[in-house]
Design a protein around this nucleic acid. Structure first.
Length: 805
RNA sequence: GCGGCGGUGUCCAAACUGGUAAAGGAGGGGCACUCAAAAUGCCCUGCCCAUCGGGCUUGUGGGUUCGAGUCCCACCCGCCGCACCA
């Protein structure tokens, strides 16, 4: 018997060195053109400090899938990089004066070191950081493509401004009126900014959700965010001012019930309609409210009558105008027709202000107002009696004929505001020329490199504006004086195409070769946290569609399958520095080895669910890996004999192969996969004395082979020991179907649904034989004697149920 | 308020299309090895009554079914998303 101990500290570096020296996980552009490719990708990490437990989890999940697919015959692209631009590094620079590049690259070095320690099977030749000029040169190139196509454009608009980060934000980065990053209440500012026309892609982003395998809740979030609603644009005319006010409504069928009209406080015409002190005061108080206060749906409806009227286009009635803060300038036209009888918000307002409430849809069962369900129209002239759904169509058609309205679709999605007044980001590659306005920097002058500066502190404009030498340049058109754009890009631009760069990361002629990218893409399995459900995942889909339109790629969706992993908690709580309950992957790996850490995280529960970290639990997993190791050592010392007839242990091994293949291959159930290997190893130790040497060798080799996707170092070492080969070069084992079924099966016998006995039945016995064997059971006979058997249910190989009365 | 997901031993959890509830791990207990301890190995471990044995058990209450953790209805609790979007 061997005295060797399981020593991950010596095994793990050994195999990591083999993989690094031999470039085991590297794939080539030729591989991309082969039929059987797979692209397994985890979300791009933001390098800050050192990796946390969530990183360990996401790469452990992804790596197990990558290994499994390789061994089932696929060429697998599994790359790594860093989302290296961004505010945290810049804020660090403001505090310490250290260049963001230095702190970022120090973090990258630490991330890289740990990823290698974890033994993740990465093709390191493709590694990049998004802050490297050789990467962002292409980010700029893509921006210019977008500019050429009119997808990138500048406009003056009310935008979200974070006073703490001193920059504008995209709508997606404002959560409940607060900055997504720092939690500061955002302000509204009128500024000229750069946008991507993502709204042009709204319908495609919505419709193509049908064609991708993503978790339902992520699709729902994207649908909600896009917020498509169908209705009509209807024009209300104000006689007094001679102005037309179009509104968007989803309920043109209720037009006859529109008894008043409301403008948002931000609407530019409010003061033209009425500039009384009362109105001015209301605007002041409404506009000074935080968006959170204003957004509270339970808030009392407030507003002021404007003393003007508009004409309801369907019945010619004059209806009063109000300004009220429950109407939002950002949605629709900033004005609404109010139908209090059939809209809860309008109803509340009408009650407060004593406006007429006119029902135009008849409640089917005499429900109270406001009634928002379906029914036939009333008080609606020639549409009376028409079911409201039909009336929707008829009224819209009629309005269109009269030139008073038209069918219309509205979206909640806004264009993506991509410019940031910060330093540590990708420079926007344009200049502002006095003669020619905005001019793209020519391709041969890319990248526009980020200059080094002294003072990173934000001052309401980009810190780059202070870099005079850099800012002042010449116009590529006329050679005259021009100033460089000083805003940088939102870091989400960097991460909206990185998966394409990985396909051909060393290409210096183009961001990628189309044939190569088309070979790998779309990503077969994308893995990451649900926190990116809207931001990154929507932007990346948008980029992909825009690039497909430019014929730069030949597919419409970047991520065919998405897996969102749950969070690892400790003591049921989120790990956080303030709670002092953080488990650092570095410490765990140093103490137990990477294999134990990885297996444990994959074992605490299905990776899609959360899992609770327990210090005792990881000891248990470490014990299991030691047992597997000992099984391999002992098996390797046994004679290598042919197995005459397969016994229980061999059957168990085939059972485990079958179980892991289905659990890992079909549903990412890493926890039950590992449990199956634990069972196999337990069985191995139990049968150590009784099983034939050949069986023990086979079972130990199988355990090593099956644990490899989760514990690659131990899997490699143990497999080499017992089977004398490199496990990653071995095909994934196949279970022998004949060994999955035993000669006899245990069948449950129930009487009236209650379990009374279990009997052994030959496999494949007829229903009659199975029933007879059940009937022969002494225990069962006693129950059957109590009455008459009315009915017998036989499930072959499973159970017999006698219904006795 | 609307939508989604979930609630199973002391804890983390398993159970494919309805068919042996609790696999596996942790924790607890016992035994072996040891002068002893650690490590390791083996066994027991849902609850109740008990002698064989029997009864009960998947948040609560009902229903469908020969049979329900699984399907249906109502309710309670938890998490996530949306929410004055016209």
């Amino acid at each position: 018997m061997s005295e060797q101990r399981y020593d991950p500290q010596s095994i793990e570096p050994k195999w990591q060195a083999v993989w690094a020296e031999e470039g085991t996980w590297e794939v080539s552009n030729d591989d991309a053109r082969q039929a059987d490719t797979a692209y397994v990708l985890e979300m791009l990490p933001y390098p800050s400090g050192e990796p946390h437990i969530g990183h360990l989890k996401v790469y452990s999940v992804g790596d197990s899938i990558a290994h499994y697919r390789r061994r089932t015959g696929r060429k697998v692209l599994h790359p790594m990089g860093y989302d290296a631009f961004g505010l945290p590094a810049e804020n660090h620079a403001i505090r310490t004066g250290q260049h963001p590049r230095e702190s970022t690259e120090a973090s990258i070095a630490e991330f890289r070191r740990q990823f290698r320690d974890w033994g993740i099977s990465i093709d390191w030749t493709r590694e990049f950081g998004t802050h490297e000029p050789r990467y962002y040169r292409w980010t700029q190139w893509l921006f210019l493509k977008m500019l050429e196509r009119g997808i990138a454009y500048r406009k003056d608009a009310a935008v979200n401004w974070c006073p703490n980060d001193a920059t504008v934000l995209a709508n997606e980065q404002v959560i409940d009126g607060k900055c997504e990053r720092c939690g500061t209440e955002v302000e509204s500012r009128q500024l000229e900014q750069w946008f991507f026309k993502i709204t042009d892609y709204a319908d495609r982003l919505l419709d193509d959700l049908e064609h991708i395998e993503w978790p339902a809740h992520v699709k729902t979030m994207q649908r909600n965010w896009i917020g498509r609603s169908e209705g009509a644009q209807v024009v209300f005319h104000c006689e007094e001012l001679g102005t037309d006010y179009p509104v968007f409504t989803t309920r043109p069928d209720t037009l006859f019930g529109a008894t008043f009209f409301v403008l948002a406080p931000e609407h530019p015409d409010v003061l033209k309609l009425n500039d009384s002190p009362e109105v001015r005061e209301y605007l002041n108080s409404a506009l000074s409210e935080s968006s959170e206060e204003r957004g509270d749906e339970h808030k009392e409806k407030t507003g002021v009558a404007l003393g003007r009227t508009v004409t309801n286009p369907v019945n010619g009635k004059q209806i009063p105008m109000y300004v009220a803060d429950y109407v939002l300038m950002e949605y629709g036209t900033g004005a609404i027709m109010a139908v209090p009888a059939h809209d809860t918000r309008d109803f509340e307002f009408a009650e407060n202000f004593g406006v007429e409430i006119r029902p135009v849809v008849e409640p089917s069962g005499g429900e109270e107002l406001p009634f928002t369900a379906d029914g036939p129209l009333v008080n609606s002239g020639r549409f009376d009696g028409v079911p409201n759904r039909d009336a929707f169509e008829q009224i819209v058609d009629w309005l269109a004929e009269e030139g008073k309205g038209e069918r219309s679709v509205n979206y909640r999605l806004r264009d993506w505001l991509l410019s940031r007044q910060r330093y540590w980001g990708c420079p926007i590659p344009v200049v502002h020329c006095e003669q020619h306005g905005i001019v793209a920097v020519p391709d041969d002058q890319l990248p526009v490199e980020l200059p080094d500066i002294e003072d990173y502190a934000p001052k309401g404009r980009s810190p780059l504006a202070a870099a005079e030498e850099w800012v002042n340049t010449t116009c590529p058109e006329c050679g005259g004086h021009a100033r460089r754009e000083t805003d940088t890009m939102d870091t989400f631009v960097d991460s909206s195409w990185y998966f394409l760069r990985y396909c051909d990361a060393l290409n210096d002629e183009a961001p990628w070769d189309r044939a190569v990218a088309d070979g790998w893409m779309p990503v077969d399995q994308y893995i990451g946290g649900v926190e990116h459900a809207i931001l990154h995942l929507m932007y990346a889909r948008f980029f992909t569609k825009a690039l497909a339109d430019m014929d730069l790629i030949g597919f419409q969706e970047p991520f065919a399958n998405l897996f969102t992993q749950g969070m690892i908690t400790r003591g049921g709580a989120k790990m956080s520095k303030s709670k002092g309950n953080v488990v650092s992957p570095g410490d765990i790996v140093a103490r137990y080895g990477a294999d134990t850490a990885r297996c444990y995280i994959l074992y605490v529960g299905h990776p899609a669910e959360g899992g609770d970290w327990s210090d005792d639990g990881i000891d248990g997993l470490h014990r299991f890996l030691s047992r597997l190791w000992r099984a391999a050592v002992e098996a390797s010392e046994l004679p290598d004999e042919e197995v005459a007839s397969p016994g229980e242990l061999t059957r168990k091994a085939h059972w485990a192969i079958d179980k892991v293949t289905r659990d890992l291959g079909e549903r990412f159930a890493t926890h039950t996969s590992i449990a199956a290997v634990i069972e196999l190893v337990n069985e191995w130790h139990r049968s150590r004395e009784s099983a034939a040497p050949g069986e023990l060798r086979f079972a130990a080799a199988t355990a090593a082979s099956l644990i490899f996707p989760f514990a690659p170092h131990l899997g490699s070492e143990a497999y080499e020991l017992v089977a004398g080969a490199r496990v990653w070069e071995e095909p994934w084992p196949e279970a022998d179907p004949s060994l999955l079924v035993s000669d006899t099966v245990e069948v449950v016998v129930q009487v009236n649904g209650k379990l009374r006995d279990r009997v052994a039945v030959p496999a494949g016995a007829s229903e009659e034989d199975q029933e007879q064997l059940a009937r022969d059971s002494e225990k069962v006979a006693g129950y059957l004697a109590e009455g008459e058997v009315r009915k017998t249910i036989v499930v072959p190989g499973k159970l017999v149920n006698f219904v006795v009365a």
